[in-house]
């Protein structure tokens, strides 16, 4: 089986005062190993919720989510934690770090928790990732002493420290300027090229253009999708335009 995640008929509701609002309405999606997927849509369409549910951060009211064949809904909390730590990596819009720890400690923390590698190997891996993402000289810095872009790169390093099968990104460039955004997306692209599946949520066509496939969401449903080819004939601008055209048609 080549699918890494299969989500079927996912429904999610939130309580808003005395009423319940449906955020996801029987959404189904499947992601194949090695794919680079982005989910696009306007604010409040349910894209971040879908990502949270597919990654086990949140539970759905109904529907099933299978990760490499195992159903997330039937897993215990400790199993889900293990899965997140060993097989998944997360990058959020706002840098999410423990403020008490310096950058390198934040990065190696999930690996140290895994207990399957020696401290030296973990440190070597962390330093290699920091070098690749251009933050090798920030090891000892506190999270309040670096820029947003640098923090986001550190976030990617932490997400990759346990060599996950899939990397989730919820608006990973949302808080960055355009230069930093481009650099961060390049890193995602490289990671994907090295075999890691990437699933991103964004409302930015520039970011979505890095993907192989883009899903469009509206009012809690996946309303369309577009596959993008990565041939030399097709530039980033062309891919971006194709996405924008599709959005126009869909009225997003």
């Amino acid at each position: 089986m080549n699918e890494i995640i299969i989500g079927e008929n996912i429904t999610k509701e939130y309580e808003e005062g005395s009423e319940r609002r449906t955020v996801l309405n029987e959404v189904s999606i499947s992601i194949r190993r090695g794919e680079f997927i982005t989910i696009m849509g306007p604010s409040g369409c349910g894209k971040s919720t879908l990502l949270s549910i597919l990654s086990g951060l949140e539970k759905a009211e109904s529907g099933t989510i299978r990760f490499t064949g195992s159903e997330l809904g039937k897993m215990k909390e400790t199993q889900l934690s293990d899965l997140r730590r060993k097989n998944m990596g997360f990058v959020f819009q706002q840098p999410t770090f423990l403020k008490n720890l310096n950058l390198i400690d934040n990065i190696i923390l999930p690996a140290v928790k895994n207990k399957n590698k020696s401290a030296d190997i973990i440190l070597e891996k962390a330093r290699e990732l920091m070098r690749k993402t251009g933050i090798s000289d920030l090891e000892e810095r506190s999270v309040t002493q670096v820029s947003g872009g640098q923090l986001q790169r550190a976030g990617i390093c932490r997400a990759l420290i346990n060599q996950p099968d899939i990397l989730f990104g919820d608006e990973p460039t949302g808080a960055l300027n355009s230069k930093s955004s481009e650099e961060v997306m390049d890193i995602f692209s490289q990671v994907n090229q090295q075999g890691t599946t990437v699933l991103l949520v964004t409302h930015d066509a520039k970011v979505a253009a890095f993907a192989d496939k883009v899903y469009f969401m509206q009012d809690g449903n996946i309303v369309n999708e577009i596959a993008l080819t990565r041939s030399n004939d097709c530039s980033m601008e062309d891919r971006r335009d194709a996405i924008r055209d599709k959005m126009k048609i869909l009225g997003i």
Partner: peptide, 10 residues
């Protein structure tokens, strides 16, 4: 943050 990076409630 800890939960997100794979620490359980336990």
């Amino acid at each position: 943050v800890l939960k997100a990076i794979g620490f359980s409630s336990r």
